[in-house]
Amino acid sequence: MGLEHFLVLSAILFCIGLYGALARRNVITVLMSIELMFNAVNIALVAFAKYVVPVGVEEQLGRMLTGQVFAIFVITVAAAEIALGLGIVIALYRNRETVDVSEASIMRR
């Protein structure tokens, strides 16, 4: 059980999330799929922090945790994104009685 296991797992979760984001009509599913992708990325980041030695890190080992710091920022962004995304969903539903992404196409005009 090493880096490759986690990376492959991460890739699988990411691609499932990508499929969901591309293929589902319900905007809430799309948002959940995006959360899946975020989590997959976080797994990869933490796995790198755990298993890979960056060049030149020997003299400043505290920086080995940089991957985890990245994960923290990703979680922050995900929180902001989900708050705004769901806000948009509520606004969309209130105005157009739908949560279908395909029908939210007024950007065309």
Binding site: L18, A21, L22, A23, V30, V101, S102, A104, S105, I106, M107, R108, R109
Partner: peptide, 14 residues
Amino acid sequence: FQTGQVQGYAVVVA
């Protein structure tokens, strides 16, 4: 190509 379908654009990105 500009369908207004966000997911269509996302597919193109993918």
